[in-house]
Amino acid sequence: MRILIITGGRIDESFALSLLQKEKFDHMIVVDGALAFWDKVERNPEIQCHFDHLVGDFDTISPNILENYLDREDIEVHRFNPEKDYTDTDIALKLAIRLAENGKEADAEDDCDEHQNEKTMQDSMNTRSEIWLLGATGTRADHMLANMQLLAQTKAAGVEGVIVDKNNKIRLLEGSYTLKKKDQFGDFVSLIPITRALKGVTLRGFKYPLERHTTYFGESLCVSNELEAEEGFINIEEGMAFLIESRD
């Protein structure tokens, strides 16, 4: 299952419209102020997708825009008091994780109902859902950093979490990852430690390789690497880091 959250940070419209045309999602969640962006999408004849969940305290969206979406039968509205414990984006992510978990259970039940073989059912259970966040970066450093660390929730749930904007694609990496050149988002690849140490870091297929090296939180050793081979292998024996593909 693939889910897109559109939240209220900076959204480059041309990039966002291209993403909506290129990528397919099973659910789309629009968060508070991002409804202003979506209101433009609704009037774009080239975009043939729709969102099904609206989340927020709605303190940043124009009431005139909001009223057009509150009573629609195809949209489930999740409204919260502005004085709440979690940000709107956090609440939307928790909703997305529940949707992903429910979808995975439903897929497994369908596989059983269709009497598929054991390997097929196991493959279905092991397929990782994806949650993408658009508009999770922008001018507010506090919100951007908070949104980046929300990826820990997707990892804990066994879901692939991705933050994307015009210039960056951000994941939270623990263990191994293979980056394919044909799928690369940008020219630069960085590992930013978020634990005290990244132990046993191996980078193969990159301009600046490493073999079981240890780097630490606060160091910039793994910033702005470049993929040279058709595939780049990344492995972290202990610790977690943000894996950031970026472009100018």
Rank of each mutant, 00 (worst) to 15 (best):
L4E: 08
I11M: 11
L19I: 13
Q21K: 12
H27W: 05
A34V: 11
F37Q: 07
V41S: 00
I47R: 00
H53G: 03
S62N: 13
N68W: 03
L70V: 14
D74G: 00
I75R: 00
T87S: 13
T89P: 01
I97T: 04
I97L: 10
L99F: 08
L99E: 10
L99P: 02
A100K: 02
G103Y: 08
K104H: 12
K104I: 13
K119W: 14
M121D: 13
R128L: 15
I131V: 15
W132M: 13
L133I: 14
L133Q: 08
T137D: 13
R140I: 15
R140S: 15
H143I: 15
H143G: 12
M148L: 14
A152M: 14
T154F: 09
T154M: 09
K155A: 15
G158R: 03
G161R: 08
V164I: 15
N168Q: 10
L173T: 03
S176Q: 11
Y177V: 10
K181F: 06
Q184I: 12
I192K: 00
P193C: 01
K199N: 03
G200T: 05
V201Y: 02
T202S: 06
G205R: 05
P209S: 07
L210R: 05
L210W: 07
H213W: 06
F217S: 05
G218H: 02
E219S: 08
L221N: 04
L221Y: 08
N225A: 07
E228M: 10
E231A: 10
E231N: 04
E231Y: 03
F233E: 09
N235W: 07
F242R: 04
I244M: 06
I244D: 08
R247D: 07
R247L: 12
